[in-house]
Amino acid sequence: MSSILIYLESHDGKLKSNAAEVATAGRKLATAQQKELVAVVIGEVATDELGNWGISRAIRLSGGNLADYSGDVWAAELAQLVSDQQADTVLMMASSQGRDLSPRLGALTGVTVIADVISLENQDGTTVGLRPVFANKAQVLVRPTGELAIFTLRPKAFTPEVVEAVATTVESRSAAALDALAIVRELAVAAGAKIDLTEADVIVSGGRGMGGSEKYDILEQLAEKLGGVVGASRAAVDAGWRPHSDQVGQTGKTVAPTLYIACGISGAIQHLAGMSSSRFIVAINKDPEAPIFKVADYGIVGNLFEVVPALNSAI
């Protein structure tokens, strides 16, 4: 029987929060196609959550040269598992790691990755994926033509589902000690170690209307109150007010939080490309003609330096 292999990312021995999205997508496909579902984790990762997502079998790979991330070594190990487990489908997250690791696995197994999909569909036993292209201005349904398909899933596009818990059998495997061509020497954690924009449920974003880096304090305060993080438009990043890692949009991050609050952002098409999949969008802008109001569920026309603090006090 062929299997569906899901690679679940971890950090410091814990599964990343997005693992639930991959697990849910994998379980649904395995059920629809009557295939075995095999979860793979790399390193000494706690696996007690897996049962809640309906995963009854997992492989934990460790040893060898797997302690630090190396795209080439990890891809070689996964390629070996694809063959051992007779996998015809591989799923992983389209995160920084997934987007680095998956193409290498693709090159090793001889397939193009169907990357950054927002939905998966079973068509007579073949899995097809819908992927946004041209900065979300269009989308295309893509089908694998060979015996193996690798998909990466766009963060937050798949809703995790907890099911009736099952027992998980975890098989530990030692990896061969492969020499790494490139391996992480050091992981510098960002100051404050905040949640990444792509994983955040609430984003308070500031654009050109902020007028300077020091004024982001009011957005930081609102974000903190809402349990979210601060983002920025390209204009704010190019002006040097915020780091590039905060940029939302075509040359930044694609985000899909539950709530996106755009402050002083006009809504250039490149910005909309990165945030228009947010569940609810609030826009605060002094220009009533700003294009951001076209996509905002709720808009307030006004001075953000008055409206944002008022909103902060009101919630």
Partner: peptide, 20 residues
Amino acid sequence: ATTEQLTWSYPPSRAEGKIV
């Protein structure tokens, strides 16, 4: 090629927002 593009479409558009 190892993948095939089937159908292209536009993403669903957001409902027109409102000014509160």
